[in-house]
Amino acid sequence: MDQDEPVFFDRRPASSGAVSYGERMIIRDTTRVRIEAIPYFIPHKNSAAELSMKLIRTDKVDGEPCEMTLNANDLKVFKRHIAQALAVSEQEDDGQYLVFRADQLDTQTSASDDAVRAIGGALDSRRFASRVARHVDPVTLANAFSATVRIGELRSAVTELQENLREGRAREDIYQSWCERHSWAFGNAYVARDDQRFIGIGDHVDLLMESTASGLRDIYELKRPDKAVILYDDTHKNWYWSTHTAQAIGQCHRYLDTLHRAAQHGLPDRPEITAYHPRAVVVIGRSHEWEKSKLHALHGLNSRMHGITVMTYDQLLAQCTALLDQISSDEAAQETTEGLSA
């Protein structure tokens, strides 16, 4: 059966009412043997139903059936082993393989976990580990693993942001969490994010970012991606900030004043967090369907503000993608250079 072919699955209760089951699935049916699988679904009060599978092999010559039941954990392990064996079967030569999809790190959010599991499983083999130790420079190996896993993590993060935007997820806390985990998205101008959000009585910022050049802090304020950023005035023929953006800009003005006063010599309880004439960035709305004239209008409105910049989530995504491409290109160039010098 083709993997894209639609499947009709009839799940119905057993006569006992204790479990449900599906139709018998024919795995093999020849003149000598018939192998079938029957899925069973065991309900649980506080979790999803547990899948078990009964395998039945019937010898058509003597008519003797042989049955075996695999529980949910058995099936997961079996599925993983089958996937690994099928992947290796596609290779022409015998050998030792790390089985994971390194070519799809940009589309699989769990790819880094797969890579770590595969590498860990391989290194658990004493023969494989001793061969690596004899023939590979440990520093080179460590650098290669570190770079590959790091690029995989960045690709996974970009994919997560893309999916959130594509699926229309609009809650601020989704993007707050994403930005807290991936502060690198704001570029090389910043070292890292602070865990501090309280800057004054009643004032909690979304993100405090440490400048790479000065060590001083700037503010990032995150708003919903489904809100309008700028609007067009047909009467006066000009673009202007939407209500939601204008409110965010006003909010940032207050935050900037508070942070400048409170952290000029370090926050009272966090003296290492300092700010002097800080800047703020508002992230709001989408721009993936904008025409160039509207993008130019946003640039013009930003250029006439002092200390505050407004950007869209699509611009943030483009910034992340560009940074990822640069890191990947640098890594590829380094591999080429090392290959030529070897």
Rank of each mutant, 00 (worst) to 15 (best):
A129H: 10
E64M: 12
T58F: 03
D106P: 06
W239D: 01
E172A: 08
A111L: 13
Y240N: 10
G300Q: 15
D226P: 14
V116I: 12
T107G: 08
V229T: 09
G307C: 01
R127W: 14
Y255D: 04
Q91L: 08
I249W: 01
Q315N: 00
R57K: 14
V136I: 10
E180S: 15
V7M: 02
M311C: 10
D314F: 09
D206W: 14
M311T: 02
D124G: 05
L267H: 04
K223Q: 14
T245M: 08
L98Q: 05
S177L: 11
A133Y: 09
T30H: 04
A263G: 00
A280G: 06
E50S: 08
Y255H: 09
S329Q: 13
A48P: 03
G266T: 13
R12W: 03
V77H: 11
S52Y: 12
I27D: 06
A192I: 12
H265N: 14
E153Y: 00
R101G: 10
T159I: 13
R12A: 12
D114E: 11
L165W: 00
G121Q: 01
M25G: 04
I249N: 02
M311D: 00
I35S: 00
A87M: 13
M311S: 05
H306S: 15
T243V: 10
L70K: 13
G285I: 08
L141E: 02
A246C: 09
